[in-house]
Protein backbone atom coordinates (compact mmCIF):
# COMPACT_ATOMS: atom_id res chain seq x y z
CA UNK A 1 0.00 0.00 0.00
CA UNK A 2 2.63 2.42 -1.23
CA UNK A 3 2.40 6.20 -0.98
CA UNK A 4 -0.51 6.05 1.46
CA UNK A 5 -2.57 4.82 -1.43
CA UNK A 6 -4.86 1.80 -1.25
CA UNK A 7 -6.14 0.31 -4.46
CA UNK A 8 -9.21 -1.83 -3.89
CA UNK A 9 -11.24 -4.05 -6.17
CA UNK A 10 -14.62 -5.42 -5.15
CA UNK A 11 -15.90 -8.29 -7.28
CA UNK A 12 -18.87 -10.63 -7.40
CA UNK A 13 -21.94 -11.65 -9.37
CA UNK A 14 -24.13 -8.87 -10.72
CA UNK A 15 -26.76 -8.36 -8.03
CA UNK A 16 -24.41 -9.01 -5.11
CA UNK A 17 -24.10 -5.29 -4.49
CA UNK A 18 -20.47 -4.69 -5.40
CA UNK A 19 -21.29 -1.25 -6.76
CA UNK A 20 -23.09 -0.27 -3.58
CA UNK A 21 -20.17 -1.55 -1.49
CA UNK A 22 -17.79 0.60 -3.54
CA UNK A 23 -20.08 3.57 -3.15
CA UNK A 24 -20.16 3.17 0.65
CA UNK A 25 -16.35 2.93 0.82
CA UNK A 26 -15.87 5.99 -1.40
CA UNK A 27 -18.36 8.04 0.60
CA UNK A 28 -16.71 7.06 3.86
CA UNK A 29 -13.38 8.23 2.41
CA UNK A 30 -14.94 11.58 1.48
CA UNK A 31 -16.25 11.89 5.05
CA UNK A 32 -12.65 11.53 6.24
CA UNK A 33 -11.55 14.13 3.67
CA UNK A 34 -9.34 11.66 1.86
CA UNK A 35 -8.85 11.64 -1.88
CA UNK A 36 -10.82 8.90 -3.55
CA UNK A 37 -11.84 7.68 -6.98
CA UNK A 38 -14.50 5.09 -7.67
CA UNK A 39 -15.31 3.22 -10.85
CA UNK A 40 -17.57 0.40 -11.83
CA UNK A 41 -17.16 -1.85 -14.79
CA UNK A 42 -20.20 -1.01 -16.81
CA UNK A 43 -21.59 -3.35 -19.40
CA UNK A 44 -24.56 -4.01 -21.59
CA UNK A 45 -25.93 -6.78 -19.43
CA UNK A 46 -27.97 -5.49 -16.55
CA UNK A 47 -28.31 -8.48 -14.22
CA UNK A 48 -26.30 -11.65 -13.95
CA UNK A 49 -22.73 -12.05 -15.10
CA UNK A 50 -19.85 -10.74 -13.02
CA UNK A 51 -19.44 -7.19 -11.83
CA UNK A 52 -16.64 -5.31 -10.21
CA UNK A 53 -16.01 -1.92 -8.70
CA UNK A 54 -12.65 -0.31 -8.05
CA UNK A 55 -11.91 2.26 -5.38
CA UNK A 56 -8.64 4.10 -4.83
CA UNK A 57 -8.22 5.80 -1.46
CA UNK A 58 -5.25 8.07 -0.87
CA UNK A 59 -3.94 10.90 1.28
CA UNK A 60 -2.37 12.37 -1.83
CA UNK A 61 -3.59 13.28 -5.32
CA UNK A 62 -4.72 10.23 -7.29
CA UNK A 63 -3.34 10.06 -10.82
CA UNK A 64 -5.04 7.04 -12.33
CA UNK A 65 -8.42 5.77 -11.17
CA UNK A 66 -7.64 2.34 -12.59
CA UNK A 67 -6.67 -0.63 -10.48
CA UNK A 68 -4.50 -3.12 -12.32
CA UNK A 69 -2.74 -4.47 -9.28
CA UNK A 70 -5.06 -4.23 -6.28
CA UNK A 71 -3.70 -3.95 -2.76
CA UNK A 72 -7.00 -5.37 -1.55
CA UNK A 73 -9.44 -7.63 -3.37
CA UNK A 74 -12.87 -7.94 -1.77
CA UNK A 75 -14.25 -11.14 -3.20
CA UNK A 76 -17.92 -12.12 -3.15
CA UNK A 77 -17.78 -15.42 -5.07
CA UNK A 78 -15.54 -18.12 -6.46
CA UNK A 79 -15.27 -16.93 -10.10
CA UNK A 80 -14.16 -13.49 -8.87
CA UNK A 81 -11.44 -14.98 -6.70
CA UNK A 82 -10.25 -17.14 -9.59
CA UNK A 83 -10.19 -14.06 -11.81
CA UNK A 84 -8.55 -11.52 -9.52
CA UNK A 85 -6.32 -13.51 -7.16
CA UNK A 86 -3.38 -13.53 -9.61
CA UNK A 87 -3.52 -9.72 -9.86
CA UNK A 88 -3.28 -8.92 -6.14
CA UNK A 89 -0.10 -7.10 -5.16
CA UNK A 90 2.47 -9.13 -3.29
CA UNK A 91 1.86 -8.56 0.41
CA UNK A 92 -1.72 -7.56 -0.43
CA UNK A 93 -4.95 -8.81 1.04
CA UNK A 94 -7.92 -10.88 -0.12
CA UNK A 95 -11.17 -10.43 1.80
CA UNK A 96 -13.28 -13.47 1.05
CA UNK A 97 -16.98 -14.27 1.35
CA UNK A 98 -16.48 -17.82 2.61
CA UNK A 99 -20.13 -18.76 1.95
CA UNK A 100 -19.59 -18.48 -1.79
CA UNK A 101 -15.90 -19.35 -2.02
CA UNK A 102 -14.82 -22.94 -1.50
CA UNK A 103 -11.23 -22.72 -2.64
CA UNK A 104 -9.49 -19.73 -1.09
CA UNK A 105 -6.67 -19.77 -3.64
CA UNK A 106 -3.03 -20.71 -3.72
CA UNK A 107 -0.98 -17.52 -3.36
CA UNK A 108 1.36 -17.67 -0.41
CA UNK A 109 2.50 -14.04 -0.59
CA UNK A 110 -0.84 -12.47 0.27
CA UNK A 111 -2.95 -12.29 3.43
CA UNK A 112 -6.47 -13.55 3.58
CA UNK A 113 -9.36 -12.69 5.81
CA UNK A 114 -12.68 -14.44 5.46
CA UNK A 115 -16.21 -13.93 6.65
CA UNK A 116 -19.34 -15.97 5.94
CA UNK A 117 -20.93 -12.87 4.46
CA UNK A 118 -23.87 -14.45 2.63
CA UNK A 119 -24.66 -16.72 5.55
CA UNK A 120 -24.52 -13.85 8.05
CA UNK A 121 -26.64 -11.72 5.73
CA UNK A 122 -29.22 -14.50 5.53
CA UNK A 123 -29.30 -14.82 9.29
CA UNK A 124 -29.91 -11.08 9.51
CA UNK A 125 -32.93 -11.61 7.27
CA UNK A 126 -31.71 -10.13 3.99
CA UNK A 127 -29.32 -12.00 1.70
CA UNK A 128 -28.58 -8.77 -0.16
CA UNK A 129 -26.57 -7.16 2.65
CA UNK A 130 -23.69 -9.64 2.25
CA UNK A 131 -21.80 -6.82 0.51
CA UNK A 132 -21.89 -4.70 3.66
CA UNK A 133 -21.03 -7.65 5.91
CA UNK A 134 -17.84 -8.18 3.96
CA UNK A 135 -17.00 -4.46 4.23
CA UNK A 136 -17.06 -4.97 8.01
CA UNK A 137 -14.40 -7.66 7.77
CA UNK A 138 -12.34 -5.47 5.45
CA UNK A 139 -12.39 -2.46 7.78
CA UNK A 140 -11.68 -4.60 10.84
CA UNK A 141 -8.61 -6.04 9.21
CA UNK A 142 -7.14 -2.96 7.50
CA UNK A 143 -8.42 -0.04 9.57
CA UNK A 144 -7.94 2.24 6.57
CA UNK A 145 -11.23 3.96 7.38
CA UNK A 146 -12.95 4.39 10.70
CA UNK A 147 -16.02 2.22 11.31
CA UNK A 148 -18.07 5.28 12.20
CA UNK A 149 -17.34 6.77 8.76
CA UNK A 150 -18.79 3.66 7.13
CA UNK A 151 -21.85 3.89 9.33
CA UNK A 152 -22.24 7.56 8.41
CA UNK A 153 -21.88 6.73 4.73
CA UNK A 154 -24.63 4.09 5.06
CA UNK A 155 -26.78 6.69 6.74
CA UNK A 156 -26.14 9.23 3.95
CA UNK A 157 -26.89 6.73 1.24
CA UNK A 158 -30.19 5.46 2.54
CA UNK A 159 -31.59 8.32 4.61
CA UNK A 160 -33.52 10.03 1.83
CA UNK A 161 -34.77 7.15 -0.29
CA UNK A 162 -34.78 4.01 1.82
CA UNK A 163 -34.43 4.85 5.53
CA UNK A 164 -35.68 1.36 6.39
CA UNK A 165 -32.40 -0.05 5.09
CA UNK A 166 -30.14 1.91 7.44
CA UNK A 167 -30.57 -0.42 10.38
CA UNK A 168 -30.03 -3.72 8.60
CA UNK A 169 -27.00 -2.40 6.73
CA UNK A 170 -25.47 -1.04 9.93
CA UNK A 171 -26.12 -4.38 11.61
CA UNK A 172 -24.58 -6.15 8.65
CA UNK A 173 -21.47 -4.01 8.89
CA UNK A 174 -21.13 -4.70 12.61
CA UNK A 175 -21.67 -8.42 12.11
CA UNK A 176 -18.94 -8.49 9.48
CA UNK A 177 -16.65 -6.48 11.72
CA UNK A 178 -17.13 -9.03 14.50
CA UNK A 179 -17.18 -12.09 12.27
CA UNK A 180 -13.89 -11.55 10.39
CA UNK A 181 -11.52 -14.51 10.56
CA UNK A 182 -7.96 -14.81 9.38
CA UNK A 183 -7.36 -17.69 6.99
Amino acid sequence: MANNQTRIIIAGFGGQGVVLAGNILARAAVIEDKNVTGMISYGAEMRGGTANATVVISDEKIASPFVEVPDVAIIMNQPSLDKFEPDIASGGLAVINSTMVEDAGSRTDIDRVSVGASEIANSLGNARVANVVILGAFIKRTGILQPRSIVRAIDELFSTKKPAFIEINTNAFNAGYEGAKSV
Binding site: N23, A26, V30, N35, V36, T37, G38, M39, I40, Y42, P65
Partner: peptide
Protein backbone atom coordinates in the same frame (compact mmCIF):
# COMPACT_ATOMS: atom_id res chain seq x y z
CA UNK B 1 -14.64 10.07 -22.25
CA UNK B 2 -16.41 7.10 -20.71
CA UNK B 3 -14.12 7.01 -17.70
CA UNK B 4 -14.53 10.66 -16.81
CA UNK B 5 -18.27 10.23 -17.19
CA UNK B 6 -18.51 7.07 -15.13
CA UNK B 7 -15.90 7.51 -12.41
CA UNK B 8 -16.78 9.04 -9.07
CA UNK B 9 -14.64 11.55 -7.21
CA UNK B 10 -15.24 14.18 -4.52
Amino acid sequence: DGILGQMAEP
